[in-house]
Amino acid sequence: MDNHSNPQTPEEERNGAEEQAIARLLRLARPRPAVPAERRERVRSVVHAKWEQSCRWRRRRNVAIWVAGSLAAAAAILVGIGLGLRHGLPHSSGSGPMLANAEIVRGTVHSERLGIIGPGTSIEVGDEFWTSADGRVAIRLEDGTSLRVDTGSRLELVDESVVSLHQGAVYVDSDSTEESNAPVEIRTPLGTVTDIGTQFEVRLKSDSMRLRVREGLVDLKRGARTYRAETGQQLLADSNGEVIAGTMPVHGDAWAWIQEVAPSFELEGRSLQEFLGWVTRETGWRVRFEERSIAAGAPFLILHGSIEGLRPDEAPAAVLPTCGLRHYVENGIITIRHLPGRV
C-alpha cells in the first residue's frame, strides 16, 4: 500500500497496530478447550432441577404483613424466622436444638441460661436474651440469615421458626444466605412480615411500630387493607390504627447501628470486586468508578491482609490505598479513582 497517496491518521495507525497485536495474541493462543459432553449433561441435569425447584418455591412465596388492632405498652413483636432447615441440627446441652450462633457482640448481652453472651455462643430454642443500653449482637442462623439486635432489646427463640422480640429492634438480612431456603418470617401482634432476599428493620416504640425496607418488598396487611413498602420506604403503624408511609434513605445515619455488629469480611485472598460488594451491601452506598480501567480490573485485583475491627464504612480508607486507589463518598455514592500519579 502506498501510504503517501492514502496516509493514515494517527488514530487509524493506532487502531491498526492494536488490531495486529490482538490478532497475534489470539493466534498464539490455542482455542479454548471444550468441556466433555457427558460432564456437561450431568451438571446441566442437576442445575436444571435446582432451578425448577427454585422457580416453584418462588411462586409459592407469600409476602404479607398484617397489623393487629391496638398497641399495648408491653406489646411484643414476634419475629418469625422460617428456617427451612434441610439438615438435622446437632443438639447441644440446652433444652432444644441449636438454631443460631452469636457472631459479633458489642457491649453487654445477657441470657438467662447462658449468662453473658460472647462471640461463638450457641443459641437454642427457648433461649431468651437481652441487650443492655450499650449492647448489640449479630446472630447467624443455621440457614445463613443474619439478625442484628439493637441496644435495649429483648429477644427469645420461641421455636424453630419463630423469634419473639419483646422490645427494641431487629434488622434482618436474608440476602446474606449462601443458599436460599425457606423465607424469613416476622410475626408481630401488629402484623406478619415475610420475604426473602430482603434487608429490613422492625422497631417497636411505646405507641408505634416502624418498618423500614432497605432492600426488597414487604406488604403490611391491617384489617382489610394492604400497604406495600418497597426499597427506601417505611411504614409507621400507630396505636390509632393509622399507617403512614414515607421514604427514607437506604444509606447514612439511619442504618449506622447495624454496621456496629456487621459480620466481618475476610479480606485475604478476596478480590476488590468482592470487597466492594460487601461494603456496598452494608453501607447502602452505590459504587461509581471514575475510570473504566478500575472497574475492569476489580475482579482480578486480589487483596491481602485483614480489616478486623473496622466498620464497613471505614474499611475503604484502609484498603483502597493499598491498591493505588482512593475514594470519596457523596450522596450515598462511593466514587473510586486512582491515587495521584498512579494510572
Binding site: 450431568r42 451438571v43 442437576v46 442445575v47 435446582k50 432451578w51 427454585s54 418462588r58 440476602d175 444466605t177 449462601e178 443458599e179 436460599s180 432476599g197
Partner: peptide, 13 residues
C-alpha cells in the same frame, strides 16, 4: 455444579 446451583437459587440477588 455447586456454584451453578447456588447461582440459580440466588439469581434474584
Amino acid at each position: 455444579q455447586e456454584t451453578l446451583c447456588i447461582a440459580v437459587t440466588k439469581m434474584k440477588t
